[in-house]
Amino acid sequence: MLLYVDLDMDQISEGYVILMTGLFIVFSALFSLFLFFRFGMSYLLYIYKIITKGRDRKIEDIAVDADEDFTGEIAAAIATAIHMYLNEQHDKENPILTIKQAKKQYSPWSSKIYGTHNRL
């Protein structure tokens, strides 16, 4: 749609064109993202700070410097613990189904005779 460079160009060479340009564009796309987050983010956060100054802050932001101690290793340890805990939670049931007669003591809750003999 965009780029039919030459219609009589054979497929393979057009393939090479697409290969080169495609790779270049993919790289440039992610590279621009990289540049932005490497260098542009701090400015953006600064602007954000100015804009939201004094307003209500319901979404608490995690202060970067306050969390120095919380490393990925701690997170991994916690995650492992949770994972191991959750893996314990099998609900294994006995696959053998039997109908057991429930042995019940005589319950006279609606017995007329019982009611007449033992007045409450």
């Binding site: 542009g40 956060l45 970067v64 969390d67 490393t71």
Partner: peptide
């Protein structure tokens, strides 16, 4: 270990 990322950055990422 990767640094902690603030919520603001996380919100800005999808938009940018």
């Amino acid at each position: 270990p990767p640094r902690a990322v603030s919520q603001k950055e996380k919100m800005l990422f999808p938009i940018i």
